[in-house]
Design a binder for these strands. Structure first.
Lengths: 217, 217
DNA sequence: CAGCATCCGCTTTGATACTG
DNA sequence: CAGTATCAAAGCGGATGCTG
């Protein structure tokens, strides 16, 4: 990117991360940790291979990403955020918060990845009954399941299947998100394709309070 | 901008504000309030006229900016942020914070505007002697003076000259910022072109404590 | 003068194919 | 797996011209 040539902190930030795709690459590395080239490619549907290579070079030169030759058993190169790269997390969190209302528009051809959904939930959910015993709730949406484990006031969110989930919620991503973020109730969500099996108390434990300006419909 | 086509809050945000210049236009409107086309152009040195018009149209269509026909005495159109646009403030603040360390690199040809400097100071300074009487400190740097008025624990920051400043600090932007943000002391700053007239207590009252990861040199 | 629209050369991006 | 090579299309930067 051509520099803006302004003595302004915001402009200088954008000189580094303002290129198309750049912040999304950082998002992938923040949400998923160290990634292989192929993993990044999969998490950035539509990116041209040469652009990904270019951006990774730029990010490395700027000191936000480091290449790492993985040890013998794996034998592949990993891309990992440096601490300077990690410091972009608050920026991405605010962008994510700002964009929440836009999640009510699921473009018909939008790609879906479960770790994006998990990231949104991490920002919006908390364990509303800290004193209850830990349970696990499996979400079946996106390209792989997500497990929510509310305990002691926080919710651990992991990708993958739970072995014995206490409840299962499945359906299209937009409906799931609308339900969990508290903008539609269960009957409404069921009308848009959601099914729920399990104790209703578990669902009530994780569903967010209706908050201002974060409204998937 | 072509949409990323991802069902992700960050990607959807960038679909709206990820274009070149877009966030800098929002920055201008946040730092300066409602602006005329010409004011924006002046605050965005280097932008092509057609691009500014394009971006303003896009921002209006996205509901972040509203055009407003100013009343009779002025007779010009003003561009103003909507509330949805204002909500980008936290995003810009985090970007600004992240970019602070980059302010130590003042490119030789970087454009300077005093309201950018003022924005950075607003994020980094506080009144360290709340019980002292209000005073005013004039900064002579950038394209117009800035007045700092510490009082009751906060610092009001305004553009323009003070009528009777209690102290005057002048010099190149980078040196001024380095001094005020606490990364060099007065003797060092003086070696890089800063001059200070006034009670040293006034300066000590506003200078920030050395903080991690925000270091103009 | 304020607020654009048009034109043109250049750079960046996107899509696909190919390679160590 | 981790890229490079190629090329068409889109976007950008700069200059200029138009309209109230």
């Amino acid at each position: 990117m051509k520099t803006y040539g302004e003595y302004c902190s915001i402009a200088k930030s954008l000189d580094v991360v303002g290129d198309r795709w750049t912040l999304l690459i950082v998002r992938e590395l923040i949400l998923r940790g160290a990634c292989r080239y192929t993993d990044l490619r999969n998490g950035l549907p539509g990116i041209a291979s040469n652009l990904l290579a270019d951006r990774l070079r730029d990010l490395e030169a700027a000191g936000l990403v480091a290449k790492e030759e993985a040890p013998p058993p794996i034998a592949t190169t990993l891309f990992r955020l440096t601490s300077r790269g990690e410091e972009l997390r608050p920026v991405l969190e605010e962008l994510m918060r700002w964009g929440m209302p836009l999640m009510s528009e699921e473009g018909p051809a939008d790609a879906v990845r479960s770790h994006w959904i998990a990231g949104a939930l991490e920002l919006g959910l908390s364990d509303r009954h800290p004193e209850d015993a830990p349970v696990s709730l499996e979400l079946q949406t996106g390209h792989e399941p997500i497990v929510l484990k509310p305990h002691d006031g926080t919710i651990d969110i992991e990708l993958g299947s739970a072995e014995h989930p206490d409840a299962i919620l499945s359906g299209p991503p937009k409906a799931i998100l609308g339900l969990l973020l508290g903008f539609v109730d269960l009957p409404e969500a069921e009308a848009t394709g959601v099914t729920y099996q399990g104790d209703h108390g578990i669902l009530a434990r994780v569903v967010a309070q209706k908050a201002p300006s974060a409204a998937p419909s």
